[in-house]
Nucleic acid binder design. Structure first.
Lengths: 205, 205
DNA sequence: TGTACATCAGTGAACGCGCGTTCACTGATGTAC
DNA sequence: TGTACATCAGTGAACGCGCGTTCACTGATGTAC
């Protein structure tokens, strides 16, 4: 519970340490409720009131942790799809990256997509997602423009369909770890392919 | 905080009242954490220690509430599919009933499918689901037997695919109420139809 | 029919705990002169 | 170069709260004789 005090201009440094400690607590305890002001302070090696120098309250702290995580998710998806020319392949790669992120960071995924929205979050709708959904929608639109999806396809509906499908398997794997799942990699791959098949069917307007 | 004491054999009556109060708290507060021993006792009109006459601890109480809810979900799905001859229609009707349950009982759905599994739950895997997944799997197998799905279909994979797809849209609607969803009934219907289209595609082995 | 007594559903008070948040403060860092 | 002083990143103690759980108890209900 001892640590060097920051120099004059280095208040921001502690802010970063606090965020990182919040992230670490989430990962190590696997419990959103474990991220308390006091636990974070303990983790950083600082007294609880020091947190308030950098965050208005507990909610603001959690919100900041989430925003950081959203950026990481978006980055990983963009990186996975970069350089893939075929638009359907790109959609599958994006979905695979999304599912992988969820399985590698289950507690972050949980807080992003499986918990009740925060109380005072005017930023939920779009700002909060750091544009990840917009990027996804654009990828679907590119597939439509390339003629890779049926002409009757509504890009927004198709994008939501894919998102909810990938989210479905990702979140079930997290929520029901004891369910007798078949081999998980094959399962996720099968789901991704079958989802895209559904979009390709001319029956689904 | 006054209520008539139960007669000799009527201890079970209070047990039911406790479960019902737990369910009500979940619905009214919309917060799993609001279901505390003390809050339930307050709701029933009894002192906290009285809860322990009927449940070993807080976990056992929550578990009992969940089991009750699982039964309700299973019942509603079975009722929705009863009397539908066409096996694909039956699958769609089951999915629609599942999604409806989630939207009408968001907090129950959350506790059933979106929260961390409890600590000492040897019953998670199958007993906990009250056979709901088994019933779903049987419905898929009937569709296979009737030749309504491609012969290469693996019933277990197909059942998980449908479950995760319906769960996906259901849980996203609950977790992201502020997202600019298109009209919800049409959206859910579209997702259900497109999921089944995916299964029908011969490409998805 | 009457009475002593066992049963058992529930009470009331208390325990120790960790939480979010506040407040007055301290003491090293950098600056003005 | 030296010193008084403002700044500001943090401390330490305390607040009131609700929680899960325990323990010794009470008092109406039903039963044995």
């Amino acid at each position: 519970v001892n640590r060097p005090r920051a120099r004059r201009g280095e208040g921001e440094h502690l802010r970063d340490e606090i965020l990182e400690a919040g992230r670490r607590l989430l990962v190590e305890t696997g419990d959103e409720d474990a991220v308390t002001i006091r636990a974070v302070a303990r983790e950083v090696g600082v007294t609880p009131p020091a947190i308030y120098l950098h965050f208005e309250d507990k909610n603001a702290l959690l919100l900041a942790v989430c925003r950081k995580t959203f950026e990481a998710l978006d980055d990983q998806i963009e990186a996975a799809a970069a350089g893939i020319a075929d638009p359907l392949e790109a959609l599958r790669a994006r979905g695979a990256a999304y599912a992988r992120f969820g399985r590698e960071n289950p507690e972050h995924y949980r807080i992003l997509f499986m918990t009740r929205p925060f109380e005072h979050d005017e930023l939920e709708p779009a700002e909060m997602t750091s544009g990840a959904f917009e990027h996804h929608l654009e990828a679907v639109q590119r597939a439509c423009a390339a003629g890779a999806l049926p002409p009757s396809t509504d890009p927004l509906l198709a994008a939501i369909f894919l998102w909810s499908g990938v989210h479905g398997i990702t979140s079930l794997l997290i929520a029901k770890p004891k369910f007798p799942w078949p081999p998980i990699d094959e399962l996720v791959d099968h789901v991704l392919r079958t989802l895209v098949e559904g979009l390709l069917s001319p029956g689904a307007a």
